[in-house]
Amino acid sequence: MSIQHFRVALIPFFAAFCLPVFAHPETLVKVKDAEDQLGARVGYIELDLNSGKILESFRPEERFPMMSTFKVLLCGAVLSRVDAGQEQLGRRIHYSQNDLVEYSPVTEKHLTDGMTVRELCSAAITMSDNTAANLLLTTIGGPKELTAFLHNMGDHVTRLDRWEPELNEAIPNDERDTTMPAAMATTLRKLLTGELLTLASRQQLIDWMEADKVAGPLLRSALPAGWFIADKSGAGERGSRGIIAALGPDGKPSRIVVIYTTGSQATMDERNRQIAEIGASLIKHW
């Protein structure tokens, strides 16, 4: 067993022997301040990774656009098919120029040779490549099948209805392509620590998230040296922004954090800054 596999296998073990965790309302004060600064709703939840206990939450059962955070769930569904012998990570998928959609920095470079399922998941999570996500959605049967996968996990809230990039439209009061912070946090925890996926697939999923290259201005910008984070960000229309993450000190994750916002007129930089400040408060009061 590799060191990384050992780390993920012992996530519940280490967490069980940690000192009790206590909620700190100071972080919620910052979440509410972010709402004021952005002029928009902000949803927040913080779960203990081992027990699933909610440590703090704000608007945990209000719907927010998922945006690209759905790509972690998508690759979880792909990995479940791999575990069941219905898919192979090494299978190569070929596609054409007509398949390319807006923001496809990886797939646009491989029109000639195609990409493997493993490479597509890596591109979808680490670079948020939209064509990679659409190609992977095709392998599982489309958005409705991802929703069905989530329902089978016990998540009857999260739903995907459309493809990239239309799913980022974020129309107010439109339930399409949305989740709730509580539902997303619980589902992410199941994917990373539950028995739904094999140990190898859980490790692969967290490795992809740990290698995320496009979430630097968010929670990662607030992390002290030595902290662990595996995350996936999302951005959408109407001032929408979000991030889902597993993080913790001492090089291992111990909490799940989900943050979503929508309806702001603020710039992307300002949305990023507010999420980073929430992260800084979380870490300060850990």
Rank of each mutant, 00 (worst) to 15 (best):
D113N: 12
T126P: 01
V42N: 01
D48N: 07
C75S: 06
D33H: 12
V72C: 07
G76T: 07
S80D: 11
E270D: 15
P249W: 03
L111F: 11
S233A: 08
N173S: 12
T158G: 04
R202V: 09
A280W: 13
I54T: 13
T262L: 07
A200Q: 13
L137T: 08
K109P: 08
P172M: 11
H94I: 11
S96A: 13
D177T: 00
S68C: 04
F149Y: 14
T262H: 12
T267H: 12
L191M: 14
I256L: 12
G279C: 07
E87N: 06
A266E: 15
G142E: 06
T112N: 13
F70D: 01
A185Y: 00
T126G: 10
K252S: 12
S51P: 02
P253A: 13
G234T: 00
H156M: 13
L120D: 02
W163L: 09
R271K: 12
G263K: 06
A170V: 10
R241G: 06
S221H: 11
N134I: 04
Y95V: 08
N98I: 14
T147E: 08
F149S: 07
L137C: 04
K32P: 02
N98C: 06
T186I: 14
S51V: 07
L223T: 12
G85C: 07
C75H: 00
Y95N: 03
A34C: 09
G114C: 05
S254L: 11
M67H: 07
P172L: 12
E62D: 10
L74F: 00
R220V: 04
Q86G: 15
M209I: 01
L188V: 11
R162Y: 02
T139E: 15
N134P: 00
K190I: 15
Y103H: 08
G85H: 12
A185K: 00
I171G: 15
L136P: 00
L150M: 13
A200T: 14
D269Q: 12
G76F: 05
S128G: 02
E166C: 13
R159E: 06
L111C: 10
P253L: 10
V82E: 06
A34Y: 07
E237T: 12
S128E: 00
P217C: 08
L137N: 04
T139F: 07
E62M: 09
M209P: 00
R59H: 09
G242P: 02
N130A: 01
E62C: 06
L167G: 02
D48R: 03
A235T: 07
I45Q: 06
E164V: 01
A225W: 10
A132L: 00
F228H: 08
K71W: 00
L160S: 10
K232Y: 02
A182R: 14
K190F: 12
G216D: 07
R59Q: 06
T126S: 11
R59C: 07
R220P: 04
S80Q: 15
T138V: 12
A280L: 14
S96L: 13
L282H: 00
M127W: 13
G226H: 12
E102A: 15
T138I: 13
V214F: 04
L73W: 03
M153N: 09
L47M: 14
I256Y: 04
M66N: 00
R176V: 06
D250W: 12
T112M: 14
Q37L: 14
L199M: 15
S51F: 05
R91T: 08
V31Q: 01
D174K: 03
L218A: 04
D250Q: 14
E108W: 09
D155F: 02
T147N: 11
A183H: 12
Y44S: 02
Y260C: 05
L137F: 08
I171N: 15
I45M: 10
N50P: 13
N98E: 13
L136M: 08
C121P: 00
R238D: 07
F149L: 10
H94W: 12
G248V: 00
G90Q: 15
D269M: 11
I125K: 00
R59G: 03
H110A: 10
L73F: 09
E169H: 10
E62V: 08
T178H: 01
L111D: 07
E145L: 10
R189G: 12
I229Q: 00
S104N: 07
A276E: 08
S122K: 12
A133F: 01
N173E: 12
G76R: 00
I259G: 02
P165K: 07
D269V: 11
E87T: 08
